[in-house]
Design a protein around this nucleic acid. Structure first.
Lengths: 189, 189
DNA sequence: TAGATTGTTAATCGATTAACAATC
DNA sequence: TAGATTGTTAATCGATTAACAATC
């Protein structure tokens, strides 16, 4: 779309993505018939449809837990607004960080979490904290009604509630996969 | 292993991981018969074997490109050494960052890249730079013989060479998946 | 020896691919 | 109308699951 392309066929899409044209058509048809025989797909139409399917028009309220390097990077570079979220609070327990500003938000003390969550509806918590802290904070947030978690801490979060959603970002796995791929690059000689 | 457990059955493993016992056994057997009938698997044995399969005993030389918040977080928290890598250089083009220290490494100017790569063997580059810079730097590194990339920039890196390995970390996708899951949490009413 | 649990084969299931009538 | 390309059905393929003989 950025390149000014207005229409595209399943074949062209599949070439770009390394899939088969069949697969593109099958997958899209799980959500509806977005194409037109003899024409293909409207690029903008598809862009809008996929955004709708993903729910990007939402504006779920998110808070960030942990304002270290990773937390700052996530807050500044993730453009939450384009992905269905809005970042409404940042918390940390390091006095050196509390009160500092990231984007347009002042970093709050973890002590203010309860008050904040009672005054503001919070849909999601983003974890950028050490792995030892993750589970405890998640339990605390669950009690405050925050039940969806985006977890960057190197700890595979799971809680004993079935109404939670956890999206773990597996950076460690990614690095080990890279290692595996490099060590198998040169097949046995 | 940390909990002192010395043996485990495919059933116990599968319960922990949300898979079937069959799948655990099938998958492990792709790499060898690590278990023992009537006993199960030695936890330490499996740990060592899987480490070997992944190639974690390697020490591939990695350099980090970009010493911003994300770069710093990756350098400090990823424990490269446990995952088959050792971080040997950090580069940035921001004068304010050049010369500062991260871990035990001094941040170098991007101008020093060529010299560094000629004097040191480098296996992998870790990208923590804006998406606009990624492709250009990757081309530059390829010419210097660095052909494996761990890419955190929000740009799906691909180059027209078939001897490269790119491991993209899809943080944007992860956030959109979370959005999708949240918006489908409450099934149609 | 009896019990447990693997490695492995066979059966099932689901996902991918191919094919083509429908239709823009 | 002819050409292109979809939506969709049928065929193929591969992955998961079940079953069980082998064996610790």
């Amino acid at each position: 779309m950025d390149k000014g392309v207005t229409r595209i066929s399943s074949r062209e899409l599949s070439d770009k993505m390394g899939l088969t044209a069949s697969q593109i058509r099958q997958d899209l048809n799980c959500f509806g018939g977005f194409g037109q025989q003899g024409y293909g797909y409207s690029v903008e139409g598809l862009y809008l449809k996929i955004g709708q399917i993903l729910g990007l028009e939402n504006s779920y309220k998110a808070i960030l837990i942990g304002a270290g390097n990773l937390g700052k990077a996530v807050a500044v570079h993730m453009s939450f607004e384009k992905k269905g979220f809005s970042l409404v609070g940042i918390f940390d327990n390091d006095p050196a960080k509390i009160g500092s500003e990231i984007r347009d938000l002042k970093v709050c003390s973890m002590d203010e979490l309860e008050l904040f969550c009672s005054e503001n509806h919070v849909d999601v918590a983003v974890f950028c904290v050490p792995k030892t802290a993750t589970k405890h904070i998640a339990e605390r947030l669950y009690k405050l009604g925050v039940k969806n978690y985006w977890n960057f801490s190197h700890y595979d979060l799971s809680l004993d509630y079935d109404d939670i959603i956890v999206e773990n970002v597996h950076m460690n796995d990614s690095l080990m996969i890279l290692c595996y791929r490099i060590s198998n690059k040169e097949p046995e000689k």
